[in-house]
Design a protein around this nucleic acid. Structure first.
Length: 475
DNA sequence: TTTAGGG
DNA sequence: CCCTAAA
């Protein structure tokens, strides 16, 4: 038996808003006429766009590129969405690697294919302060206007970039600017995936179902859609007309403006007319870009107070394509570097570096049980094999990298060496701290003896230096 | 990618 | 936690 699901737009839509806070790369277009326009403030309207899906990027196979930017992108939460969909090997790998289960030989064998969670900074997008805005992230494109200018999850864009073919959506606006060469700033609040069907055996796993859906969506986004611009319910067919001529300007009420995704006849993506002033940049090879539209002729009016921000802003501003809403001081946290960098075209690129700064990961204090696991692993493996420690005791803790473990050990050692009164945070049992000191002492004296690790016993270390430990603590 | 350390 | 030089 096979089940077939009809995925309604509303069920599958992915809202930019759901992660506008953490990931603007929303991959779905829509097939809806409803458009939401949000007016952040009087002088701007924006369309929150979804992105073409970068899902097909070879995440796993991507070699470690020196390009930090790329690495960051890969590490973004976005990628996490459809990770191993195509890498069975990796899945198995995960499955097989259980806590303390792998053997050395196994490590090596798996090592090559493993996908270590290197840069994950982006992940914090989802949980940092920005979440407050995302709110329930329920569906819909909410009609509610953005109220929080500063924390708005939406990403303001000043120029229309080749809207990715897969994206479409709705939008509208009301605005109040009167300038001539203004940029129309639109925020596409969300995109919806056109209805589609899938068929899958009942025996399939939920995981495969997810992959199937993702693949279907990816396929649709890939090349099967085109964007249709609607104005007052009517399709705007002339691609050569300027927005102004069409009636899409900052001076007009854009309530009637909308975007809709429709099947792409020729399989060729929608392309924006090159002569359009707003089309300032094309997306690079990377498909994970958001189309941005904006209407903000006078950026300087909204210059943020943040020095850093201003700097980045200026940098970007030097190029028409780089304008972005600075009304959002948390811009950096909300906009993935990729989009920013992409926007920065030409000369103005050098300073845009700051825009490239990734979001700091959320702080996640180690629990006592984690400390216990770490200590136990280090006692066994030593202090120079963090990758192994990771695999052994934290393989299932994706948010703990071997670097994190190494750092934690460093802090544990420090904690163990200071007096209890100087310690902060959740108190770590003295017993564990003693083990830390003992293990440290033990391994700092041992030569890298792989096999010796297996013979190492806590009792030995504790007995050997308990007194020293006590003395140190007292001191 | 990992390790090792400084920030 | 982040950033990076080295390996």
């Amino acid at each position: 038996m096979h089940w077939s699901w009809m995925l309604n737009p509303s069920e599958t839509s992915i809202q930019a808003r759901s992660y506008g806070d953490h990931n603007p790369f929303v991959p779905f277009p829509a097939k809806r006429d409803d458009v939401n326009v949000i007016s952040r403030d009087d002088d701007e309207k924006s369309l929150e766009c979804t992105h073409p899906s970068p899902l097909r990027e070879p995440f796993r196979s991507t070699p470690h590129i020196g390009d930090r930017r790329i690495r960051k992108i890969l590490a973004s939460k976005y990628w996490k969405v459809a990770p191993r969909s195509k890498n069975v090997t990796y899945s198995n790998y995960d499955k097989n690697l259980k806590f303390g289960y792998c053997r050395r030989s196994g490590y090596k064998r798996l090592r090559a294919g493993r996908n270590y969670p290197f840069k994950k900074r982006k992940f914090s997008y989802c949980s940092s302060e920005s979440n407050s805005d995302v709110g329930t992230g329920s569906e819909g494109i909410s009609d509610s206007p953005e109220k929080n200018t500063t924390k708005n999850a939406s990403i303001p864009y000043s120029n229309m970039h080749g809207v990715t073919r897969e994206s479409s959506s709705l939008a509208d606006l009301n605005k109040s600017f009167n300038s001539r060469d203004s940029h129309v700033k639109l925020r596409i609040k969300s995109f919806r995936v056109p209805e589609f069907f899938i068929e899958i055996p009942e025996s399939a796993t939920v995981g495969s179902l997810k992959r199937t859906v993702m693949e279907a969506v990816t396929a649709i986004l890939g090349d099967g859609l085109c964007v249709v611009v609607l104005l007052q319910g009517k399709k705007v067919r002339d691609d050569n007309k300027t927005l102004l001529q069409t009636g899409i300007s900052c001076d007009n009420h854009m309530d009637g403006l909308g975007f809709r995704l429709e099947p792409n006849p020729g399989g060729s993506p929608l392309k924006l007319p090159r002569d359009t002033p707003l089309l300032l940049a094309r997306y690079p090879a990377n498909p994970g870009l958001v189309n941005q539209v904006s209407c903000d002729p006078s950026p300087e009016l909204r210059m943020p107070n943040s020095g850093n921000f201003i700097e980045s802003y200026n940098d970007c501003a030097s190029s028409p394509t780089d304008m972005f809403d600075k009304s959002t001081t948390e811009y950096k946290a909300l906009v993935p570097e990729m989009s920013i960098e992409t926007l920065a075209v030409g000369p103005a690129h050098k300073k845009s570096k700051q825009s490239d700064v990734a979001q700091r990961r959320i702080r996640r204090p180690f629990s006592i049980s984690e400390v216990e696991a770490l200590v136990q692993a280090v006692e066994k493996l030593g202090t120079g094999r963090w990758r192994d420690v990771k695999l052994r005791a934290f393989d299932n803790a994706k948010h703990r990298t071997y670097v994190d473990l190494k750092d934690k050990w460093k802090t544990l050692l420090h904690t163990a060496r200071i007096s209890p009164q100087q310690r902060r945070g959740e108190p770590v049992p003295q017993e564990l701290l003693n083990r830390v000191l003992n293990a440290h002492t033990h391994w700092s004296q041992q030569q890298p003896l792989p096999e010796s690790c297996l013979v190492y016993h806590n009792s030995t270390m504790i007995a050997s230096s308990q007194r020293d430990v006590d003395e140190k603590i007292l001191g």
